[in-house]
């Protein structure tokens, strides 16, 4: 059994609990042990780098320290925004001067030997895809989905070192393995407005509406994400988009782990899919998946 340090991040303990729940369940089913990073803190995400370079590096760096003490080498991160910050600092720590400064801010030495990978990467190696294929209980046959990677999983490529920055394929391969039909669309890595929904709701509604419209036009019945910010912007704002623009998309938004969990036989209730603000259960019930 492979063991990973698991960094859930703040969203997965709050607005994206269903991502945390489904991630833990599918990893268990696929034989991956997740051990939560001890006393982890917020990585600073979308805010720390806005105001302070050293805060933006030191907050995520503090989460790498316990991993070595836990005797682990690799950390897997479900949230794309957390992944971007943790991966960035793991690259920066290779520079001895930067490492010394971060050590000074932390008040402790930091080695930077931990490998950071996104959960979507951990769960889409050929080995895991083969294993998932052998464990499918309910294939997602006929479910037409648009895979949405967003900004930070693949960009900037020098740091993210994951998949293709313009036309990534890993989530597509996973969904096809599960029996889904993956539609072609041009918004796979477009931005949803990230951290702006509170301060500039108007911008996020505009960007999210464009994404939802493009997915619908491409024939998708649902959008699949690997990021709690993307999920929140697309799932929770459809009511406001209807109010402002008159478009009633009723487009279910899934975390990829939820669909993987369904295919592996977990009931929708256990995966917390009822937590979504845009109804996703009707679509699943219509296909005998929930």
């Amino acid at each position: 059994m492979s063991t990973y340090a698991y960094y859930p991040g703040c969203s997965l303990h709050g607005t994206a609990k269903e991502y945390d729940r489904s991630a833990r369940l599918v990893c268990q089913a696929l034989g991956l042990e997740l051990r939560e990073v001890e006393d982890w803190n917020c990585c600073g995400a979308s805010s720390a780098h806005m105001v302070s370079h050293w805060l933006a590096l030191s907050l995520p760096a503090r989460n790498l320290q316990p991993v070595e003490k836990m005797g682990l080498e690799t950390m897997t991160v479900p949230c794309a925004a957390c992944y971007a910050r943790l991966k960035d600092v793991s690259c920066e720590l290779k520079d001895p001067e930067v490492r010394a400064k971060i050590g000074r801010v932390l008040g402790d030495q930091v080695t930077g030997r931990v490998t950071v990978e996104p959960l979507i990467g951990t769960l889409t190696t050929q080995e895991i895809l083969d294993k998932a294929a052998s464990l499918i209980v309910k294939p997602l046959t006929g479910l037409k989905v648009a895979t949405y990677y967003g900004c930070l999983l693949t960009r900037p490529p020098k740091v993210a070192q994951f998949d293709d920055p313009e036309n990534p394929q890993s989530m597509d391969r996973l969904l096809r393995t599960l029996g889904s039909e993956v539609v072609e669309w041009y918004f796979k890595t477009e931005c949803c407005g990230a951290s702006l929904p509170v301060a500039r709701t108007d911008i996020v509604l505009d960007l999210s509406r464009k994404l939802l419209a493009a997915a619908k036009k491409a024939g998708a019945e649902a959008i699949v994400t690997a990021c709690p910010m993307c999920h929140s912007n697309l799932d929770s704002r459809q009511g406001e988009i209807r109010g402002r623009y008159g478009d009633d998309f009723k487009m279910p938004i899934f975390f990829f782990t939820e669909l993987l969990g369904l295919a592996l036989g977990y009931p929708a209730r256990e995966l917390l899919i009822a937590n979504h603000l845009t109804d996703a259960l009707s679509l699943l019930q219509g296909r005998g998946l929930a």
Binding site: H13, N41, L59
Partner: peptide, 22 residues
């Protein structure tokens, strides 16, 4: 201004609790 307020509040909470309190 509102964007700056958002980030200030965000980081103020992280400074206080160590995690974001939504």
């Amino acid at each position: 201004r509102t964007v700056k307020v958002f980030h200030d509040v965000f980081l103020g909470l992280v400074e206080r609790f160590g995690r974001l309190y939504e």
